[in-house]
C-alpha cells in the first residue's frame, strides 16, 4: 500500500475552480463559434460502451435475471463481451440488462429485432477494432455513426420509461411547443454514483434549438453553477404561484428555471432564440399538467 493518494487528497480544492473551468470553456466556445464547424461525420464516430455513472441498485432480480438470459442469447457470452469491450463493471451489465428488458417490453417485435441487430453490428465492429488495437477506418466510423443514430431513434421510445424507474419525481414533457418547433431527442443521464437521473429533452425548428432538463430539487445544474452566475440579466419572480428564474447571458442565450418544491424537482430550460413569454409557456405546460393531476 502507499499513501500517495491520501497525500494528494490533502490538496484542497478552491471554490473558484468551477468559475475557472467555466471561463476556460467560454473562451474556447467563443473562439470556436467564429470558426467553421467540423463536418459532423468526422466527429464522435467511434462508439464506446462506457457507462456514465453507476450505482443503481436493483431491488428485484426479475429484470436482471430475465435479461441476463436475454443478454447471453444476444451476445454469446458475457465473457466474450468483457474481453472485447474491456467492460468489467457488473453494474454496467445490470443497466444494460434493464435497458434490454425495457426495449423488449416497449418496442414491437420487429422494432426490437431491428434494434438488437443494430447493437450486434455495433459491438461486432467495435470488437474487431479493439482486437486489432487500431483506429476505425473511415467506412467503419461512418457506419458506427449511422448505427448509433438509428439506435437512438429506438432508445428514445423507452428512455423516459427507463428514467422514470430511477427517478423519485414524476417525469413531465411539454404539451405546448412554440410554432415550428418539434422534439428532436429525449434521453437521460446520471452524473455521479447514486444520483437521480437528469431528464433531457431537445427541441428545434431546424434553425434554433431549446432544451429542458428536469432534475431533483437539490441537485445543482451545470448551467446554474457556471454560466448563469455571470449573466448580464437575471430575474426571480412568481407566475401562477410557481417560482420562476430568468437569465440572459452576454452571448444572448436565455435560460429559465421553474422550481416545484412540493413535487421535488426543477426544470432548467435554455434557448437560442425564444422570447421570455414563449419559454414561460413551455415550462407552464410541463408543470401545470402535473399540478392539476
Amino acid at each position: 500500500m502507499n499513501n500517495i493518494k491520501e497525500e494528494f487528497k490533502k490538496i484542497e480544492i478552491p471554490n473558484e475552480i468551477n468559475n475557472r473551468v467555466s471561463l476556460g470553456v467560454h473562451q474556447a466556445k467563443s473562439e470556436k463559434m467564429k470558426k467553421k464547424r467540423t463536418p459532423k461525420w468526422l466527429l464522435g464516430a467511434v462508439a464506446s460502451v462506457m457507462i456514465l455513472g453507476t450505482g443503481f441498485t436493483f431491488g428485484g432480480s426479475y429484470i436482471a435475471g430475465a435479461a441476463e438470459t436475454l443478454f447471453n442469447q444476444l451476445f454469446d457470452s458475457r465473457q466474450n463481451f468483457e474481453e472485447a469491450h474491456l467492460e468489467k463493471d457488473p453494474e454496467f451489465y445490470h443497466l444494460f440488462d434493464q435497458s434490454l428488458a425495457l426495449a423488449e417490453e416497449v418496442l414491437t417485435e420487429e422494432e426490437f429485432a431491428a434494434y438488437i441487430q443494430l447493437l450486434k453490428e455495433q459491438f461486432e465492429i467495435q470488437s474487431e477494432i479493439r482486437k486489432e488495437n487500431r483506429e476505425p477506418t473511415g467506412e467503419e466510423a461512418a457506419r458506427l455513426h449511422r448505427i448509433m443514430e438509428l439506435e437512438r431513434s429506438y432508445e428514445s421510445e423507452f428512455a423516459l420509461k427507463e428514467a422514470q424507474q430511477l427517478a423519485s419525481y414524476s417525469i413531465t414533457t411539454p404539451t405546448y411547443l412554440p410554432e415550428g418547433y418539434r422534439q428532436d431527442n429525449e434521453s437521460f443521464s446520471i452524473e455521479k454514483k447514486g444520483e437521480e437521473p437528469v431528464i433531457e429533452l431537445d427541441f428545434s425548428n431546424g434553425e434554433y434549438k431549446f432544451s429542458t432538463d428536469q432534475l431533483g430539487i437539490d441537485k445543482k445544474h451545470g448551467l446554474e453553477e457556471y454560466t448563469w452566475k455571470d449573466a448580464k440579466e437575471s430575474e426571480s419572480y412568481s407566475l401562477n404561484g410557481i417560482e420562476f428564474f430568468y437569465v440572459k447571458t452576454e452571448e444572448n442565450f436565455t435560460g429559465m428555471r421553474v422550481t416545484l418544491p412540493e413535487k421535488g424537482y426543477k426544470i432548467i430550460m435554455s434557448a437560442d432564440n425564444l422570447s421570455k413569454k414563449e419559454m414561460e409557456k413551455v415550462l407552464l405546460s410541463m408543470v401545470e399538467r402535473q399540478r392539476n393531476s
Partner: peptide, 17 residues
C-alpha cells in the same frame, strides 16, 4: 442505455453543457 459517448458526442458538436 446511458453511455458516455453521447455526452462526448454532444460536446464534440459544441454542447458546452
Amino acid at each position: 442505455m446511458i453511455i458516455i459517448n453521447r455526452l462526448v458526442k454532444k460536446a464534440q458538436e459544441g454542447d458546452e453543457k
